[in-house]
Write a protein that binds this DNA or RNA. Structure first.
Lengths: 129, 129
DNA sequence: GCGAACATGTAAAAACATTGTAAAAAGGGG
DNA sequence: CCCCTTTTTACAATGTTTTTACATGTTCGC
């Protein structure tokens, strides 16, 4: 059981854009009308990112939410999972999942403007001690 | 992590003038309606200057606030960062960031009159702590 | 004015930090 | 065991910050 669902049962609207659709109640992800096969962790990670589309989510937050890791733990598993997600997202990968250097990642809806680099929306560890 | 945010969470009003807008809660900077991409240090430096628009901030204060350097430390990194900020500010650069020879720098709102050298508004701790 | 002494500007290199990636190792459920 | 998933490992690639070296600018005494 992923860390995600632990007491986290609020209603979440399905996501949909030109290429990607995600139904959180069914845990179904569809890319260009084909069903994506995701492992548990891959799904949890993508779900978390998509549910916060447009927001930067710090690494620590992702590691906390999906893995239950506290900030001290040093691991590269997040990077590896991001990589596999991107692979499965095919050509849209970098369009969808942005790396925010030194902070974390952000999922962007397909058409979202991408001029710049908005910063972390808030979280405690985003920038400072 | 920047020295800036260390216990420095007082409310700061967003900045805005004809060309530049800065939202400190989101750490977002917009120049002529396009988002500026700043590295952490660049942002910290610009934020500090803008938050004290119109005031001269001595080099030592900047180095203290943004880098945590004490006055003895000899480094040119401040100059280099100022340069990069100016570059990213494009044509408005020298309009915005003034060099006060022998003292430090000052950020000026776009229309601000620019006679000559006002004195340092404050010494040592005006800016910080 | 002129030049010495010091401050700042600038480009490039060096140092440092973070993220990407492939492959191997470790875990877990039939 | 076998297969699939997850994590670690080791190194490559990329991003950021600082230093270095020299150019340019400013002040000040003469």
């Amino acid at each position: 059981m992923g860390m995600l669902q632990a007491g986290n049962n609020y209603q979440v609207m399905p996501y949909r854009d030109e290429h990607l659709a995600m139904d959180f109640t069914q845990q179904a992800v569809i890319l260009d009308s084909e069903r994506m096969t995701l492992t548990r962790k891959e799904y949890d990670l993508l779900a978390l990112l998509v549910q916060h589309a447009g927001e930067i989510i710090p690494r620590e937050a992702l590691l906390m939410q999906v893995w239950g890791y506290s900030p001290e733990i040093r691991t590269r598993t997040l990077d590896v999972h991001v990589r596999r997600l991107r692979k499965k997202l095919g050509g849209y990968a970098d369009q969808y999942i942005e790396t925010i250097f030194g902070i974390g990642y952000r999922f962007q809806p397909f058409h979202a403007p991408r001029f710049f680099r908005p910063q972390v929306v808030q979280p405690a560890m985003a920038v400072g001690a």
